[in-house]
C-alpha cells in the first residue's frame, strides 16, 4: 500500500518513538492517521499496518473493533459528531442531535447519499463547559444551537 509522503514521514517517525522491538505500539496511531487519508480502515490497510508494525492481522483486527473512532466503512467527507452526554444533554444536546438527523437526513453512523456528510451521536468529547458541542472531523464547535449547526453545515456544503 502506498501513502502520501507526509503520512509516510509520520509513520517513519512513529516507528522510532517506541523502545526497540516495540513496533506494535505504533498500531493505533498508524491506523487513525491512515484512516484520515484512506477514508476507512480497509482490509488492505489492516494487513499493511500489521506488516509495518510486525504483528499478525488479527492483532490489528482486535484493535480496529475496539476503538470507536476507527471505522471499517468510509464516512462522509465531513463527519459530524454530536455529543449528547450529560453536560450537553442538560443544555440541548439531544435536541441538537435530533436536529442534525433531520438536517442531514441520516441517522447514527449513516452517511448522506452524496458521501459529503456522516452523522454520529458521540460520547463526551471534553467540551462540557462549552456545551452543547459538535466536532466535525477534528474541529470542535462550542455552544452550538440548531441555527448555528445549520450555518456550519450549509457553509461546508457551499465550500464544495
Amino acid at each position: 500500500m502506498t501513502f502520501s509522503p507526509q503520512l509516510e514521514q509520520r509513520f517513519a517517525k512513529l516507528l522510532t518513538r517506541y523502545p526497540e522491538g516495540r513496533t506494535r505500539s505504533a498500531v493505533i496511531p498508524m491506523l487513525i492517521y491512515a484512516q484520515d487519508e484512506v477514508g476507512a480502515v480497509t482490509r488492505e490497510l489492516i494487513d499493511e499496518v500489521a506488516k509495518r508494525c510486525k504483528v499478525t492481522p488479527v492483532q490489528v483486527d482486535e484493535v480496529v473493533g475496539y476503538y470507536s473512532m476507527l471505522h471499517r466503512k468510509p464516512q462522509g467527507k465531513f463527519h459530524v459528531q454530536v455529543c449528547t452526554n450529560i453536560s450537553c444533554l442538560l443544555v440541548g444536546g439531544e435536541e441538537l442531535y435530533e436536529h442534525a438527523k433531520k438536517k442531514l437526513g441520516v441517522g447514527h453512523k449513516e452517511t448522506t447519499a452524496d458521501g459529503q456528510f456522516s452523522l454520529e451521536e458521540v460520547e463526551c468529547m471534553g467540551a462540557c463547559s462549552w456545551a452543547p458541542a459538535v466536532e466535525i472531523n477534528y474541529d470542535f464547535h462550542h455552544h452550538v444551537t440548531p441555527e448555528k449547526l445549520d450555518q456550519l453545515i450549509d457553509g461546508l456544503r457551499k465550500a464544495q
Partner: peptide, 14 residues
C-alpha cells in the same frame, strides 16, 4: 482474537 468492544465483544478468527 477478540473483536469489537463491550457487550458486542466477540471472538474473531484470523
Amino acid at each position: 482474537g477478540v473483536g469489537n468492544r463491550g457487550a458486542v465483544s466477540e471472538i474473531i478468527p484470523n
